[in-house]
Design a protein around this nucleic acid. Structure first.
Lengths: 333, 333
DNA sequence: GTTAGCACTCTGCATTTGCGAGTGCCAGAA
DNA sequence: TTCTGGCACTCGCAAATGCAGAGTGCTAAC
């Protein structure tokens, strides 16, 4: 297929590619004229376009799509790259560092921007809860969930609680609910509160509010971005206005998260090319993502953002293995 | 002083300013020719320079310096702006959010990039400590310090501890050291360990390692940046290479932190103009900073980064009040 | 179906040209 | 002494021009 060579060539050096170069370089033994005819067909199909009448053709998003879906032969990842990813990640301690290192690795190896969402676990398992009195009527709640994640919130309580009251409450919750999921705890707590209304009523309500907050927060999650500046290297980004709105989108996070959200639900790798994402700022960009999981449950997604003209054959497997390595690293702890 | 009008004019519209415009617009009743003579003098003093023979003059860093030091008349901050800062910050809960909101406000109001270092308290006061067993020989240590800051670390212990052992240890530490500074705790702990060597020996050692870590971490601090994209609006930033290295510096943080560090030690506001900062990436930038404090102790610094050609008369007071408001907001909790 | 050839179009680049803004300097006025 | 008007000069910028190169579409022949 001629499209393949055209896309490869364009990816390689970013210039519109014409019939002559293609004839010489593609290995196919065809004259420029024939190629011109074929290219005219491709243009009619909407797979390529010419930026102006007498320049070569460049692939459209649709063209890239076909290329990626059916023409692409991926390059296996250098085993030494895999090793460097693995080592970097395995050595890392906390979950948060793990995520940001993964993002770094992605951006370094691909020379694009790396992005990794924070892991979101469907099942948040309470391990330990602790109330600590601050000033009057303010209580610090510390929650340990999922092994070693610590969350904390300050709540304003309705009345003042003594230290021993708080301890009793915490003891109760710990003995009763440790090991359970927050969801579960929430409903059971609600139940038992309806039966007996005791002095802790309000405090328990507050505790519930916190669990709600935490469950909520799990939802509107976040991501870690690295190597944005890599994107400035690409010629198609020379337009400062485009660049600004892209960076703004990175900061706002909302739109980007929305796209990443789509790929977390679709099992397997996902590739958004140019305008496919539906967001104007990403028109000139592609996004290659792969979900990562723990215990066979998808808990996040990682990937890279770069110009549509990225080296898919190299990037795709890199994203893939990084997801696998990250999954493995997360399982460990 | 003529320099004043020149700088003001240049700040206003970014064009090299010539003798004619200055003669007409400065209010001084002088002919262009006179002004030309004066400007020649200024150039000799190194306060202005002409980008090429027949363009007007633009201020040098030295020129800006004199301008801000002795010629500047600051505009009082709009009281409604002060109010919006105050409201935004007072409504905020956690310290971390406070910092990032402050940064946001700075960047919004000035239309430059806002930067705020995380507060670093010399005295870290232990409020509560808690050990939680994870897997075998791994213990999660939760430290509450300074009112409501929660820190946590996982440590690998030498041997396995039972839940009750851990609780005893925590109880001991809490009853003995709560309210003390970590430094103090550290030395006392060391002392008592040399006297009696008990079963907890190792655990205590580990606890101490943690306090060390936390004290360390206080040192290599961090900052929150907002509105970087604002900088892309300025003509002097059109050069994509400059822009990239600037953004890289933002990401690396090291150099920026170093500069911010200088201003944390210098009481009062600090202004770095262009190459004064000593870092090449900031050649075309100025940095206006003010320290913020709690209980009369400087614990951080905030400011804005923008082109040398920024509206100092507006920016300086804004940075000033933001520092004050942030200080006040931090005192509250 | 493929190829060669031809006329045509468009861009990129360098060169030229003119204009305007601004300067430096000098001689004369206050 | 200090300021001003005038004049020649210098540059940069922008528009105009011309040219070479790359690429196309089309048609006619293989």
């Amino acid at each position: 297929m001629l499209l393949k060579f055209l896309v490869e060539r364009y990816i390689r050096d970013g210039q519109p590619v014409g019939s002559r170069t293609l004839a010489k370089d593609s290995g196919l033994d065809l004259s420029p004229a024939t190629i011109r005819n074929v290219m005219a067909d491709l243009e009619e199909l909407g797979l390529v376009r010419s930026p102006h009448t007498s320049a070569g053709r460049i692939p459209t998003a649709k063209g890239y799509r076909i290329f990626v879906d059916s023409l692409l032969t991926v390059k296996p990842v250098q085993s030494r790259e895999v090793e460097s990813i693995r080592q970097k990640l395995v050595a890392t301690g906390s979950t948060e560092n793990l995520i940001s290192h993964a993002s770094d690795m992605l951006s370094h190896i691909t020379a694009l921007a790396g992005v990794v969402t924070l892991p979101r676990r469907e099942r948040v398992r309470l391990q330990h809860i602790e109330f600590l009195p601050l000033a009057s009527r303010r209580v610090l709640v510390i929650l340990v969930v999922n092994g070693q994640e610590v969350q904390n919130r300050v709540i304003d309580t309705e009345r003042e609680y003594s230290l021993s009251e708080l301890q009793r409450a915490a003891n109760y919750l710990n003995s009763e609910f440790a090991g359970l999921e927050l969801q579960e705890m929430r409903s059971r707590l609600l139940e038992s509160m309806q039966q007996a209304r005791d002095a802790m009523q309000h405090l328990m309500q507050d505790a519930m509010r916190i669990t709600d907050q935490i469950l909520d927060q799990q939802r509107d999650d976040d991501y870690v971005l690295a190597g944005q500046t890599n994107l400035m290297n690409y010629a198609e980004m020379c337009d400062i206005d485009k660049l600004r709105s892209l960076f703004n989108a990175f900061n706002t996070k909302r739109d980007i998260l929305h796209i990443l959200d789509q790929s977390i639900h679709a099992e397997g790798m996902q590739i958004f090319i140019g305008e496919e994402s539906g967001y104007e700022v990403l028109d000139a960009c592609s996004l290659v993502t792969a979900p990562y999981k723990v215990d066979d449950e998808v808990i996040g997604v990682l990937g890279v953002i770069g110009p549509t003209r990225m080296a898919y054959d190299r990037v795709i497997p890199i994203v893939d293995v990084t997801a696998k390595v990250l999954s493995a690293a997360l399982r460990q702890d």
